[in-house]
Write a protein that binds this DNA or RNA. Sequence first.
DNA 1: ATCTTATGTCAGCCTTGTTGACTTTCCAAG
DNA 2: CTTGGAAAGTCAACAAGGCTGACATAAGAT
Lengths: 171, 171
Amino acid sequence: MAQVAPAVAQKSGESLLFLTDEQLRKGIEAMFFAYRGFTADPDRILEEKGYGRAHHRAIHFIHRAPGTTVNNLLSILGVTKQSLNRVLRSLIEDGLVESRVGHRDKRERHLYLTEAGLELEHQLSDAQRARMRDAYRAAGPAAVAGFRQVLEAMMDPEMRRHFHRITERGA
Amino acid sequence: MAQVAPAVAQKSGESLLFLTDEQLRKGIEAMFFAYRGFTADPDRILEEKGYGRAHHRAIHFIHRAPGTTVNNLLSILGVTKQSLNRVLRSLIEDGLVESRVGHRDKRERHLYLTEAGLELEHQLSDAQRARMRDAYRAAGPAAVAGFRQVLEAMMDPEMRRHFHRITERGA
DNA sequence: ATCTTATGTCAGCCTTGTTGACTTTCCAAG
DNA sequence: CTTGGAAAGTCAACAAGGCTGACATAAGAT
């Protein structure tokens, strides 16, 4: 990619402008406001169906890694099993998620979206991708590459591992 | 590092690869995992003091726009006055925030951080800026510019207005 | 004098997070 | 075969922080 810019460049010069407190604060505020937009569209859909963000997250990652175990989902989402279980139970009851007993290890439950689950996932992800697509389109490919680099650098190492594991299939 | 590069399609001249569903999903997941990192450090500090993210947000924006009114804060934060009031009350009781009756319009309350409030703000923002600085440094100035462009494009128009209003002082 | 705005507050509800305790299932090591 | 421990589920209780609705005050605006 384009930027190498070790930023160590001209000492008393500039180019370190992007590391001033003011710039960092703007980045922080941008994250805050952008995240609101990021979740706004799915939130509207979810509210109609009587679900919340917790349901969205479960649906998203089950769709992304069909057959994932509860434990795996737990470590991706970073919540307690009790929290996840409440969400999962309602999704299973409502017929959006199917829980299959493991064949190798029958203690494990493997999670899959049902037809109805896939449909909701689609609806949610369509809305969220539309927003992301518009933002990407407005900013252009180079900006998108930078966006992704900064986000990745911002993750905790464990989350970065999850990110790569989930993401490594496909481009 | 890793393959962030949009392997760039040499389609009929332009790179639209960054708009594939897969790329968009990766962007969505990057936002999710990065936001976790973004809030992780302040969250740890807040927990020690018995506060939550809601307190952090109030402190942040009061610091950013000292003398702001309750109504203004309300529209920035996008919560109800009851929600904000609960948070504000505890901050005022604990002596972190001061509420002064307006001079021109005595119905308004203008909010300021006290010495103690400024100190906590500093502690929180130091932690958050440190993470942001490391991410910026790792990604470089060009990536940072792209990062900010995409985030801004992702905001709802009203949030973007707030962002610009808050941000337009300084660089 | 009346309408409206800004703020504060009480009560109650929901979602989603937490901890702790306990059970069931079942793999695997002794 | 027995037993230890991991995976999963469940129940109960609690807290933070959203929400709505209702109501009270003070004070600017008409």
